[in-house]
């Protein structure tokens, strides 16, 4: 199924994927009593943040992420997508790392978990990172900076 006017969009896959992400976050919330915020869990797993979440459990969650991705890639046989070059990845990674710690969350913690409980902080965070994300891509396109092959 396609969206009129957006031939490249995949709305059904998006909804299914989003539903699974919500289910995973719901499992953490109702099962473990915690927010499934990946940046916070990553910082905790690698000793870069204090939290009551045991480090082993933080690692188990992080280990699950590529496991789930591998299962989907295996079952669907989807092609491996293109990624940016190493210098771009390093610059982006550094900025994402600093930004998510200072901003106390990313697309999962603020976006999925925070917005769904109407957290004021998360609504502000999401509006902010969406705005700078839009601006960054627009600026890079305007200056002809293509990062993907």
């Amino acid at each position: 199924m396609t969206l009129p006017g957006f031939p490249d969009a995949a709305p059904v896959a998006g909804l299914i994927g989003g539903g699974l992400i919500g289910l995973a976050a719901a499992l953490m919330l109702l099962g473990a009593g915690r927010i499934a915020g990946v940046s916070g869990i990553a910082a905790r797993a690698f000793g870069l943040a204090e939290s009551s979440l045991p480090r082993g459990q933080a690692f188990a969650f992080l280990l699950g992420l590529p496991l789930g991705a591998a299962i989907v890639m295996h079952l669907t046989g989807a092609a491996v997508p293109a990624f940016a070059g190493p210098v771009t990845l390093i610059v982006a990674g550094l900025i994402v790392g600093v930004g998510t710690r200072l901003g106390s969350g990313c697309t999962s913690g603020h976006g999925v978990c925070g917005m769904s409980r109407l957290s004021q902080r998360s609504l502000v965070a999401v509006a902010t990172f969406m705005a700078t994300g839009f601006a960054t891509v627009a600026a890079m396109n305007a200056f002809g900076l293509a990062v993907l092959p």
């Binding site: 990946v38 940046s39 990553a42 992080l62 992420l65 590529p66 496991l67 789930g68 991705a69 591998a70 890639m73 491996v80 997508p81 990624f83 940016a84 771009t88 990845l89 610059v91 982006a92 990674g93 550094l94 900025i95 994402v96 790392g97 600093v98 930004g99 998510t100 710690r101 200072l102 901003g103 106390s104 990313c106 697309t107 999962s108 603020h110 902080r121 502000v124 965070a125 999401v126 902010t128 990172f129 969406m130 705005a131 700078t132 994300g133 839009f134 601006a135 960054t136 891509v137 890079m140 990062v147 993907l148």
Partner: peptide, 30 residues
Amino acid sequence: RLVGGSALFGIGWGIAGLCPGPGFAALAIA
């Protein structure tokens, strides 16, 4: 701090098209 950090995160997200969760998940893809 919340606004500034989130602003930075959005810039990094836009540059490479990756945020933390997909970064870890993609370890099994690329």
